[in-house]
Structures are given as C-alpha cells and as structure tokens.
C-alpha cells in the first residue's frame, strides 16, 4: 500500500488544486473533478482497497471545503473506488478507452450519490437538471481528463509498487 506520507500530501495538493483552481471552472455545466478522477484511476491501477483509502482521504478534505454535509463527497468517492475494476471493459483493448468508459460510469454514480446525500440532508434536489446539466457534462469532461491523470499516476504506481506484487486484483 502506498505510504500515507505520500498519499496524504498528494491528495491534499489535488484537493487544493480542485478547490482553488478548478472549482470555479464550468464548461457548459461540466466541472473538472480532479480528486474524483485520481481516485478512480488509482482504484483502476491498485484495486479497491487502495482506491478506498484515496477516496476517504480525498473526500474528507473536499468535504471540509464544502458547505454540504460532512461525508457526502467521501461517500460518493468511496462508491466510485469500489465500482472501478480493471477487469471491466477489458475487451475494449486499449487502457485509455477502458478508462474513458469507467470514468463515464463512475462519474454518473458519484453524482447520483451526491444528489442522494443532499436529498437526505433536506436540500431541494432537481434530478433532471442535475443529471442532464451537471452530471452528464461533468462525466464527459472527466472521462476526457482521465487518460491525462492516468499517465502520472501509472508512473507513481510503477515507482511505488512493492517487489513481488502480483497483478491479481481484489
């Protein structure tokens, strides 16, 4: 497992970039979710156990920056980390294509969980608007971003993978 000395500062940095730089960005309703993409890619590379650790840490930091209920974004990211599997979409062949497909699905579920949490917390939720104008465009944008996040994270994966680590996934 990637040591916490790397994981914590890395995810803090990613969350800060998302909060300070990317959160105000909106491209036709789509918002780049750097932490979401990183969690999905790491779960893709290392499996759900490490993915869930990233989801928990990254989600908690984002929750602190958010006005929403604490744990809401964390829950969304955890669902993503548990959903993403390398085995899925293997017949598609190339890794970037696999990633794009996985991100589309992961992002959709992430937004559904966010909306469910807000509904539970008593917010007025407009499902049709949320899914069509925010979740849909965001899924497309994050799917496009995924291969770019994959390159540095796969490098980190190779550098930090323990000796004798098998490629058998959880």
């Amino acid at each position: 497992m990637l040591t916490l000395y790397i994981t914590l500062p890395l995810l803090t940095a990613l969350a800060l970039v998302q909060d300070a730089l990317l959160a105000p960005v909106s491209i036709m309703g789509a918002r780049p979710d750097l932490v979401l993409v990183a969690v999905a890619v790491w779960a893709f590379l290392r499996g759900p156990i490490e993915g869930s650790l990233w989801a928990f840490i990254g989600g908690m930091i984002l929750d602190l920056f958010s006005g929403g209920p604490l744990g809401g974004i964390t829950l969304g990211l955890l669902v993503v980390s548990l959903l993403v599997r390398r085995q899925w979409g293997q017949e598609l062949g190339s890794t970037p294509l696999q990633l794009v497909l996985l991100m589309l699905i992961a992002c959709f579920f992430y937004h559904v969980v966010l909306l469910l949490v807000l509904l539970w917390a008593g917010h007025a939720v407009n499902w049709s608007y949320g899914l069509s104008q925010i979740a849909g465009p965001s899924a497309l944008l994050n799917a496009v971003l995924a291969p770019f996040v994959y390159w540095p994270l796969s490098w980190l994966d190779r550098r930090t993978r323990p000796e004798g680590f098998t490629l058998v996934r959880d």
């Binding site: 959160a23 984002l62 958010s66 937004h111 807000l118 917010h123």
Partner: peptide, 8 residues
C-alpha cells in the same frame, strides 16, 4: 474557498 460540491 469555492464550493467543491457542484450542487451547492
């Protein structure tokens, strides 16, 4: 600090 949840 900007909102990190796109629905809020």
């Amino acid at each position: 600090g900007y909102e990190t949840n796109p629905y809020l």
